[in-house]
Design a protein around this nucleic acid. Structure first.
Length: 832
DNA sequence: AGAACTAAAGTTTTT
DNA sequence: CTTTAGTTCT
């Protein structure tokens, strides 16, 4: 026990020991709130609170997982497993799976426990279909817009009916009509959307006293992290569980919320930081504790953060302080363009990483900004991992298999049925589905039910009907097989017995890219194998739900040695020794949209995002902007972000690219003005006393990204789980020999091959690693003019040689394919 | 029914 | 510029 409370400061200790009543912890960035939360839970358990009485809500799955791990280390795994630790959505999903049959819907058609959770794509398709069906102008009623209106309404606990009663103008009324249809559609599919998870749980608890009491009595101690990012539905849920809708709250119950108004960055999805500001009014005798000591960042970084956030009006006064000393100054680099920006960042990482790439993060405002930085990483052979963007579960082949599972789990899920009824090809085309859909509408039943009685429909001939029924009986067979084997084996069965795998294998012979799809399916099977259910029954349903709620971010792994690339939003809650904030241009960050906005609070949210970004850095913060960027094929010119100006200039060292694009061709040209400004000459790059690389000449402009070919599939392959990246050469070799399809063996064989490939990749990665650490000696440095051969690019000649610290960069002219910059250590060049 | 082409939209941020 | 959805052609 003494151990447990060791090294806590006064405020932290008080927070840990306050285990009754409502507690509000205002925790600044890096003030050790996660530690407080986990210690507080452990403290309560050691003082007699039962683990099943604890409910801890986090913002991301990753945070939940980490919290479980940390508590597990203190109290042991078997204690943690009785606690409910998860995201709002995860917890609501669990409550709904247990009780959704007791919820009375507006349509009177109740949902059952095998309900499907529709993702973004599903809801988009449904809404688009409805807009068409209602003959509305698709320009005025854009799917995206309608969806966000519906989502916002749900976040405010308004259902279709509540929305309709509020709709005054014509357009709102039309949207209300879409909303109503949409709800009907979800209902008919026995499906719910993301927002419904919260909305329905609150309504269920409201409606049903028995269910409400069950959870009220169970969860006597509730903790909520990132409370500044809760929306009204989430607020009501917490309130309902804490008070049980009773007028008086027994003192031995506790509700502990932790948050930081300055880090509220999700208002666009309904979050409202006024909720945290009202906490003291919501409950009697609220204890308030402020954590202002920062244990993460140096003085200069905190100082910058404090100065930026001070420009906001809507906040609770709070000043972070640190005892880490001033530390290094911030660096600010004005790049010539986005390529220069990326190269500046990568050059710095290369110089300072010494092999430890996980010390670095590059943060940006929008996902698309990752592209140039990714290209630069590839070109320099720096290992990186992009979070966000394309997700594993968004891939068509993965979605197809999941659609089968969803349909097996819930045959009313017509959305999934539509997706896979002709995958693999079963000669069931558009027309047939259209007829089936009309028939289902007519009868007010799901597509699957319609198949069962399709011979009653005049549009169908016997042949079509037979094909449909074959499909239905396949699904039935799967349903019977479902509980006879493990989830992993069941998924394998589905992939194979549907004929999907053999179809892909067939295609892979002529198109090696398809091999990736097969590997992704293998990876999906692996996910199923690793799945640990919370409850014993209804595993398929639970698995599907878990899959619906995971994000790319959750797969983050601190141990892997790569540079982290992510949006500022995704970085919340994380920390890195060195952080780069890229794209600090007026119009990029803050985004143009929020500069133009009528509502000044939207600009304040951008500023909070900047605050979040700055406070991610522990030791060194780099800020980067660019004078011009390519947008939709055209160059746009930008001014530095206002947030730069909000940082006192004495905290920053500034550098500017001397690359002015009127002189793009002569990259060695340096203007006298810039030279005077930066005070660093080209030769000083590797000799800086403090060890940091200084931007110098127009290296950036001359640094051409890897060939299109190298990146051509980048959007598809950008962020596959690391285990499924495969070399195209291996693909081709595999595609040559036809794969037989006999039971499980095909997939087992795939597994073997995958293992081999993995081992190969690992050894390659190791080699690169060693090379980067300087173990590999570059034996010979070629001269300008040397003719060389590159395995991918072919013949070329060296036009420029640059020495950057320990490494050597060549600029190589490959003729038609253009000039490329390559690192001597990785390019594997052959001298001719 | 499926491939191949064409037009239009897109860049906030995500559970 | 890139990606996607939709359309036309075979």
């Amino acid at each position: 026990m003494e151990n447990l409370l060791e090294n806590l400061n006064k405020e932290q200790l008080e927070a840990v020991k306050t285990t009754q009543g409502p507690l509000l912890i205002l925790a600044g960035a890096g003030s050790g709130k996660t530690r407080v939360l986990t210690t507080r839970i452990a403290y309560m358990i050691k003082n007699g609170v039962k683990p099943w009485n604890i409910l801890a809500v986090t913002f991301t799955n990753k945070a939940a997982r980490e919290m479980k791990e940390r508590i597990g280390k203190i109290l042991g795994e078997d204690t943690v497993k009785y606690m409910w630790v998860g995201t709002f959505h995860g917890i609501c999903g669990r409550i709904l799976r247990e009780n959704i049959d007791k919820y009375n819907t507006a349509t009177g058609k109740n949902l059952d426990k095998n309900f499907t959770i529709y993702d973004d794509l599903d809801t988009n398709q449904i809404i688009t279909r409805i807009i068409k069906k209602l003959n509305l102008d698709e320009k005025q009623y854009q799917t995206k817009l309608v969806k966000s209106i519906i989502s916002n309404a749900k976040n405010k606990m308004q259902d279709a009916y509540a929305f309709a009663t509020r709709a005054r103008d014509f357009k709102s009324q039309k949207i209300a009509a879409i909303f109503e249809e949409y709800e009907k559609s979800l209902n008919n599919n026995n499906a719910i959307d993301f927002d419904d998870m919260l909305l329905l749980t609150v309504k269920l608890l409201e409606q049903n006293e028995e269910v409400r009491t069950k959870y009220y009595e169970r969860f006597t101690h509730i903790l909520v992290d990132e409370y500044q990012d809760t929306n009204i539905a989430q607020y009501q849920l917490v309130n309902m569980l804490y008070t049980g809708m009773k007028p008086d709250i027994p003192q031995e119950r506790s509700l502990c919320v932790v948050g930081d108004v300055d880090q509220s960055i999700y208002s666009w999805r309904g979050a409202d930081f006024k909720i945290i500001m009202n906490f003291q009014h919501d409950y009697k005798n609220v204890k308030l504790i402020k954590l202002e000591q920062n244990y993460r960042s140096t003085g200069n970084i905190l100082n910058a953060a404090n100065n930026v956030i001070e420009n906001n009006n809507e906040r609770v006064e709070k000043v972070l302080y640190s005892n880490k000393g001033e530390g290094e100054k911030l660096s600010y680099y004005i790049a010539a363009d986005e390529t220069d920006e990326a190269n500046y960042i990568i050059r710095n990482i290369r110089q300072n990483a010494h092999g430890n790439y996980n010390n670095f993060a590059v943060l940006y405002r929008t996902n698309n900004q990752s592209r140039k930085i990714e290209e630069a990483c590839m070109g320099a052979g720096i290992p990186y991992r992009i979070y966000g963007s394309t997700k594993f579960y968004d891939r068509a082949e993965v979605k197809n298999v999941l659609a089968y599972l969803k349909l097996i789990n819930n045959t009313d899920d017509s959305q999934s049925l539509r997706r896979i009824i002709n995958v693999p090809k079963r000669a069931i085309g558009e027309t047939t589905v259209k007829h089936l859909s009309d028939f289902a509408n007519e009868q007010d039943i799901s597509l699957f039910e319609a198949i069962k009685i399709c011979d009653e429909y005049s549009e169908f001939n016997a042949k079509t009907c037979a094909k449909l029924k074959d499909f239905a009986s396949l699904i039935h067979k799967f349903q019977q097989a479902q509980n006879t084997c493990s989830l992993k084996d069941f998924m394998t069965l589905v992939i194979e017995k549907t004929g999907y795998l053999s179809e892909l294998q067939e295609k892979a012979i002529s198109d090696p890219e398809i091999e990736d799809d097969i590997n992704n399916l293998q990876e999906l099977v692996n996910v199923a194998q690793d799945f640990v259910p919370e409850e014993q029954d209804n595993q398929l349903s639970e698995f599907l739900q878990q899959v619906a709620l995971v994000s790319d971010l959750d797969s983050m792994n601190e141990e892997s040695n790569n540079v982290t690339l992510m949006t500022l939003h995704a970085a919340k809650g994380l920390e890195f020794p060195t952080v780069f904030i890229a794209g600090l241009d007026e119009g990029i960050f803050p985004s143009q949209r929020n500069i133009n906005s009528m509502n000044p609070s939207e600009l304040e949210e951008e500023r909070r995002l900047m605050y979040v970004g700055i406070t991610r850095a522990k030791e060194k913060l780099y800020l980067v902007s660019a004078k011009r960027r390519q947008m939709w094929g055209e160059y746009k010119y930008y001014n530095p972000s206002r947030f730069i100006e909000e940082i006192p200039s004495n905290l920053i060292e500034s550098f500017e690219s001397d690359n002015d694009y009127s002189t793009r061709e002569e990259s060695t040209f340096r203007s006298a003005v810039t030279r005077a400004k930066s005070n660093y000459s080209r030769s000083s790059i590797s000799t800086d006393s403090d060890g940091y690389v200084r931007p110098s000449s127009g290296f950036g402009a001359n640094f051409v990204a890897p060939s299109k070919r190298g990146l051509s599939t980048s959007t598809v392959k950008r962020t596959p789980p690391k285990s499924i990246i495969i070399k195209s050469a291996a693909n081709k070799a595999k595609a040559q020999k036809p794969l037989s399809f006999d039971g499980y063996s095909a997939i087992e064989r795939m597994k073997e091959e995958r293992k081999l490939r993995l081992a190969q990749e690992q050894s390659e990665a190791q080699k690169r690693e060693e090379a980067l650490r300087g173990n590999a000696v570059i034996t010979e440095v070629y001269d300008v003019g040397q003719r060389v051969f590159h395995s991918q690019m072919g013949l070329g000649h060296i036009t420029d040689v640059m020495h950057l610290g320990e490494s050597v960069m060549y600029t190589i002219d490959f003729g038609k394919l253009g000039k490329k910059a390559m690192d001597a250590a990785y390019a594997k060049l052959k001298k001719l």
